[in-house]
Design a protein around this nucleic acid. Structure first.
Length: 217
DNA sequence: AAAACGGGGGC
DNA sequence: GCCCCAGTTTT
């Protein structure tokens, strides 16, 4: 895809974005607090948005910073975040993260990819979202929506999200890195769904290489 | 590369 | 009942 076509895709997605509900992490962390971005992103993994939203609000009402989170025990965290996916594992890891951040990083969420990746339950998707949304640093956050849609557009031809991140870093202008994920997630949830995508309502279908796939409507 | 982790909600 | 969900970790 040519550079001017990528510009057009972003422009069209920005217009469509206004009609969508914001991604849940963006809603919860409007103040761009890296702590809230990190924690709510972890809560969101394999979890529906509405569940993530409720859990995040409950947790941040009690613990809106890393020190307060550290004061909670595992059972308390479990009860606050239930029923997000893997809530027991996440409660355990959130507790660990609080301790690590306080002991090793002076209570500050690190703004470095490799350091973030050392935290339990933090992979590339979460780490890059923290960098992009929490610190405003150029980072490409590839979740399943970005991965799927980038391939449908022919922007990349990849099997795994990690490959997609690498491929996008070569062709996507840096000025779009931070917002790319925010644009594609609601688009992927509402229009460019995994199965039965609404191709007839798609504002970027002219750039799509897989129009009509998977029982599209 | 593939399975496991895990509970709620949609159909 | 079966399948999906802003992935990560382990095998």
């Amino acid at each position: 895809m040519k550079a001017d076509q990528i510009d057009d895709v972003v422009k069209l997605l920005r217009e469509a974005y206004r009609g969508f509900v914001e991604p849940v992490v963006t809603q919860v962390a409007k103040d761009k607090d890296p702590y809230k971005v990190l924690i709510s992103t972890i809560l969101s993994l394999r979890t529906k948005d509405e569940t993530t939203l409720r859990a995040s609000i409950r947790l941040f009402d009690i613990a809106d910073n890393i020190y307060k989170l550290n004061e909670l025990n595992e059972d308390e965290i479990e009860r606050l975040i239930y029923p997000v996916g893997f809530y027991k594992t996440k409660a355990k890891n959130l507790k660990k993260i609080a301790r690590i951040i306080i002991e090793n990083y002076g209570g500050k969420i690190p703004d470095d990819l490799d350091e973030l990746l050392k935290l339990p339950n933090v992979g590339r998707k979460t780490a890059n979202l923290v960098l992009a949304k929490g610190f405003g640093k150029p980072a490409i956050c590839v979740d399943i929506h970005v991965h799927r849609i980038s391939n449908r557009l022919g922007l990349v031809d990849t099997k795994t999200p990690e490959e997609t991140e690498f491929a996008l870093s070569k062709i996507l202008p840096k000025k779009y890195w931070i917002e790319f994920n925010d644009l594609l997630v609601p688009f992927g949830q509402n229009i460019c769904r995994p199965i039965s995508p609404f191709c007839s309502k798609c504002i970027i279908s002219k750039y799509c290489k897989r129009k009509g796939v998977n029982k599209s409507r």
